[in-house]
Design a protein around this nucleic acid. Structure first.
Length: 648
RNA sequence: GCCGCUGUAGCUCAGCUGGUAGAGCACAUCAUUCGUAAUGAUGGGGUCGGGGGUUCGAAUCCCUUCAGCGGCACCA
């Protein structure tokens, strides 16, 4: 038998017979390691302890101390354990697939009846039994025909379909957890007893399409979360509670920002508080865009379908557009219009007015464009996903040579904007051509190359998302991470050679001939509605002072202070602070509590002393301490704090 | 759009197997002028998402519809 050389993380190596398994290697090292071992990393690949190693390799034996492999195995084995438990409790259920996801895993089952929350309890109990039984996990490589025969015999059609999707050169592995068996690429733990029995939880049931395809059957999905120990599970549950406490739908009501109602699903009724945030943010963006060399425009809401046909949107998106029909009784002829779902075709119309010269490029056109999209009912979510929204939209008409510079300018613009809004960093994804697209492959080659060169030249790190581009061009997407680690896609920068072509945009070049401009679609916030939702959740309702709808409440302690309270409010208002008086006949405790719950960032309390000394006692939201400050000082300080960051 | 769940006072929620609805907070009135997260008393308020049906009788059962929630699919 031939010998191979294994190299360990500490640099030591040893010669062993080819075909040795990591489990045997671990046993060779020590008995305790052999018991603690969960898997190995062989040449960087996550390896089952039972898989043979055939050639020289680097090897590391993993234990529960190694977080990434440990979590992967725990969650993956739990998927199997759960599937086994489900088939024990409900023998008629067909198994499909159960991958590791997010904080746990899910597994899809084919079953007539949906699972109920009560079922989960029974399944969870059965899972604990399996774990306590410490059933050994065993693997074998089968050939295709044998697997096919097996799943034909056991009547598991989904498994056969999965089998057919495995590339021909991959080994087909069969795993046993005790006497329960599943086809799986592995790796897995040594035995079910290695799964921490107190660190997982089945969380919810739902349905999902087989293979994510909405023309295929719907399966019943069970989600679970799992960690290495109970504390981590608890921390995760606390994270979920934290996220719930920050939910913009809840804070939106508590802070009286907006409401929504049945008569206008997916559309926002902004209350004075919410609209203050909205307009403050919009004013800020307007100033920034002006400074960034954009001209602002505004375009119609109701536009004839002819334009949408020309742009290509009618073909692709008419099911998601609000169609407005005008019949012959009202017009000379029947007309079909659509509420605009985006602004770009209208911007091309403005560009097309009059002759444009190469000297006009780049032409940066911005609009706070109110759009309407008939989003599927199941997609609606608070103010994050709505049917009526306003984008901070912009289109840059430029030459190919200018793409790189515009890309760099935009990233700088976006970096500053995000920083002002409390997000210090972001991630960039470069999304390439999707399957369904317009334009030739040559054109895509060209444009993708130009955009990638542009992003490279800025020096910003980015990742590539194959096939995730727009149907008309590649794009960069910008992702923010919020205060509790959730990721939001907001900004976008898209190169589009197609729309100018379809809508006949041209400019006169230096050669006095007609040329086709490129169009760069770009947004920083995305939509005001959604971005405000993100701001609320990121700050847990404690918005930065300049964005807070109610910045200061001046609260009287005794009614003798009322006149001075009004004077303080007037002084603050004059300094540009959104301040209001609270001279109700209530105790200061009551007022502090109420305004704190409403997330007012600053409360100024006024009693006899303050009236006499012409001071205020200032208390910031969430702080227990107070400070006494001269009226003039507090007015100046808060006035500065209320100023938008770009004006300070 | 699909699957499941939910829909009772402004908010959060109770209301068992059908017999014309209840709590806390909020609100109003009165008293209290009280120094940093709820002062006390009294009082008003809903016909139970909409429509239809079963029944002597429905918030409670059935059908249908709308909306919301959790996923899936979608996201120009």
């Amino acid at each position: 038998m031939s010998q191979i050389t294994l190299t360990f993380p500490d640099g030591n190596s040893r010669d062993v017979p080819a075909g040795i398994t990591p489990g045997e290697v671990a046993a060779d090292i020590s008995k305790s390691l052999s018991k603690k071992a969960i898997s190995a990393t062989v040449n960087g690949e996550h390896f089952d302890l039972a898989w043979p190693i055939e050639a020289d390799a680097s090897i590391a034996i993993n234990t529960m101390q190694d977080e990434a492999p440990a979590l992967e195995l725990i969650r993956h084995d739990l998927a199997h354990v759960m599937a086994r438990a489900v088939q024990t409790v409900f023998p008629d259920v067909k198994v499909t697939i159960g991958p590791v996801r997010d904080f746990g895993w899910f597994y899809d089952f084919d079953r007539q009846e949906p699972f109920t929350p009560e079922d989960l309890g029974a399944i969870e109990a059965e899972m604990k039994k399996i774990i306590n039984a410490r059933d050994p996990v065993r693997t074998e490589i089968w050939d295709r025909d044998r697997v096919r025969q097996h799943y034909t015999d056991t009547d598991e059609p989904y498994k056969i379909e999965l089998l057919d999707r495995i590339p021909g050169d991959e080994p087909i592995r069969m795993y046993w957890h005790g006497d329960w068996q599943d086809m799986c690429r592995g790796p897995h733990l040594q035995h079910t007893g290695q799964i921490p029995a107190d660190a997982f939880k089945l969380t919810r049931v739902s349905s999902a399409y087989w293979l994510g395809d909405n023309t295929r059957p719907q399966l019943q999905r069970i989600y679970g979360v799992a960690f290495r120990n109970r504390d981590d599970l608890k921390k995760h549950q606390q994270f979920l509670e934290e996220a719930e406490a920050r939910d913009h739908r809840r804070l939106g009501r508590e802070m009286d920002l907006y409401h929504m109602q049945e008569e206008a699903p997916g559309q926002v009724f902004w209350h004075p508080n919410g609209w203050t945030i909205y307009t403050t943010l919009q004013d800020y963006m307007r100033r920034r865009q002006r400074a960034g060399g954009y001209v602002e425009v505004n375009t119609p809401q109701v536009v004839d379908r002819k334009l949408w046909e020309a742009s290509g949107h009618w073909d692709k998106y008419q099911d998601h557009m609000f169609i407005v029909e005008v019949d012959e009784e009202h017009a000379r002829e029947k007309a079909i219009n659509a509420l605009k779902p985006m602004n770009c075709p209208c911007h091309v119309q403005i560009f097309n007015q009059g002759l444009k010269s190469y000297r006009d490029l780049p032409l940066r056109m911005a609009e706070f464009g109110s759009c309407a999209r008939y989003e599927p009912s199941g997609a609606l979510h608070g103010i994050m996903r709505v049917r009526g929204f306003t984008q901070d939209d912009g289109h840059i008409f430029c030459t190919e040579d200018q793409i790189q510079d515009e890309c760099a300018k935009f990233i700088a613009f976006l970096t500053e904007t995000y920083a002002d809004l409390g997000f210090e960093s972001f991630d960039i994804a470069f999304a390439t051509r999707p399957e369904k697209r317009v334009g030739s492959d040559e054109s895509w080659d060209h444009v993708e190359g130009a955009l990638e060169a542009a992003i490279k030249s800025t020096g910003n790190p980015y990742r590539v998302e194959e096939g995730d581009g727009s149907f008309y061009g590649p794009k960069l997407d910008f992702y923010l991470t919020d205060a509790i680690g959730r990721v939001w896609q907001c900004g976008t920068f898209q190169v589009d050679p197609n729309l100018p072509e379809r809508l006949g945009a041209t400019y006169i070049g230096e050669d006095s001939g007609k040329h086709r401009p490129y169009m760069l679609h770009r947004a920083t916030l995305g939509s005001f509605e959604r971005f405000i939702g993100i701001l609320i959740e990121n700050s847990a309702g404690r918005l930065p002072f300049w964005l807070a709808p109610q910045q200061v409440v001046v609260a009287s302690i005794v009614s003798e202070a009322d006149d001075y309270v009004h004077e303080v409010v007037a002084a603050l208002t004059k300094a540009g602070v959104r301040a209001s008086a609270d001279i109700r006949n209530e105790k200061i405790n009551y007022k502090v509590r109420e305004h704190s719950l409403a997330k007012v960032p600053v409360i100024l309390a006024i009693g006899r002393k303050e009236v006499e000394d012409r001071t205020v006692t200032l208390r910031r939201l969430g702080e227990k301490t107070t400070q006494v400050i001269e009226l003039d000082t507090v007015t100046a300080d808060l006035g500065m704090e209320a100023t938008a960051p770009d004006l300070r």
